[in-house]
Write a protein that binds this DNA or RNA. Structure first.
Lengths: 208, 208
DNA sequence: CCCTATATAGTACAAAAGTACTAGATATAA
DNA sequence: TTATATCTAGTACTTTTGTACTATATAGGG
């Protein structure tokens, strides 16, 4: 690598940025910039262009889901984006990778694992966490699986429940009927073992 | 302070624990233990007793709200508990302090601020963040306020919405009628500017 | 080919949620 | 004292949610 690497850390928590910044010193010649919200990320990408790497928190002002990741990835095609998230459920990982991320790091990971992942991405490789493979075929294929997993459509609708959308709003957004949305929501509830949207939201927040 | 201080860091994110651990070195002689969930916290408190300080994350397996904080505080009355949270809304701060916490640190705070807060608590003082005072009378008094803030009852019910409870479950838990719960829920929605419980949950997650 | 799962859409119904009122008790601020 | 806000509880009503079915089309596995 010629010269110092430019890395942008985007997280709203100072201590996390500090810890990550310290971790990155192990890479040698690195120049680290920080952003606390989407506005600051975009400002950095516009004015100071050309970052080699963007470490992007998935729970910060302006970036709360894969859509936010997609926006950032599209506005910085030359920068490798690694998503860092506390929620490492398979559907989240898949959504982020589909959105254009080059890697996904769980916040529960040890520092060494994070560093290895970052080095892999800097080397041009995609990094996918092992958890992602544990559930094997469930999320790894874009085709529907036979297993009793949450289908892509259900995952999509799950995200919209989390975003506070009503059945009607979901139907309009996806170009479906109310009836179809209800069918998907009920199927999702059955798989999650819940019987209300608020419980489905809690499932996404806590365990998964 | 005689000898080394015993400090327990409870957070499910490794990097955060590392960053905090590093930060604590500035205090001099400290012995740091770590816990990743409630089970590990309780194990530490039982077997290794007598911690001077417990830095407790408010979003980790087993500890998601003030009730969790209360349980921990009660099981370790000799240990000063400082809650660390990404959500520093007034009602969260108040709930934690009421639960018995000696301090409340926002994850968005700079390291220096965190360190100062920790030192204050170790000195026997309660630390309350300045944000808590910005909204002045709203949360600082246990009496109801005239301001258009979220009342204690509404905060309590808000938390139960977040936990996925139905109106009926809330009514039973609080010994109220369905009608009264609905009244509180509607009043909360009006203040939050939403019209569904899923949106109310999202409000708690994102901005506030 | 058969079985299964998904995605779609419909009907029908029960339950829950949400709104809009009234109303009494209580506490606080002006 | 008056006004305001909370907490409680009630009635009445609409809308939304959730479940239980049927049904068609598609795609994959055995």
């Amino acid at each position: 690598m010629i010269g110092a690497m430019n890395i942008l850390i985007a997280d709203d928590h100072a201590l996390f940025r500090d810890g990550m910044s310290l971790l990155l010193q192990a890479l040698g010649q690195v120049h680290v910039a920080e952003a606390r919200n989407r506005r600051e990320i975009e400002a950095h990408l516009k004015h100071q262009d050309l970052f080699d790497l963007l470490l992007l928190d998935l729970d910060m002002p302006g970036i709360t889901n894969a859509d936010g990741v997609k926006r950032i990835c599209e506005s910085a095609p030359q920068t490798a984006v690694v998503v860092i998230s506390g929620n490492d459920a398979g559907y989240v990982v898949k959504a982020c990778l589909d959105a254009g991320a080059m890697g996904f790091i769980s916040k529960s990971s040890a520092g060494k694992v994070m560093l290895a992942a970052i080095q892999m991405v800097l080397a041009g490789e995609r990094y996918v966490p092992s958890i992602y493979f544990d559930n094997s075929s469930e999320y790894s294929s874009d085709a529907a699986s036979t297993a009793s997993s949450i289908s892509p459509r259900q995952q999509q609708i799950w995200q919209m429940l989390i975003d506070g959308k009503s059945n009607k709003e979901i139907a309009i957004a996806l170009g479906l009927t109310d009836s179809t949305v209800k069918q998907h929501v009920s199927a999702l509830f059955r798989k999650l073992g819940v019987n209300s949207r608020t419980q489905a939201i809690q499932k996404a927040r806590t365990n998964s």
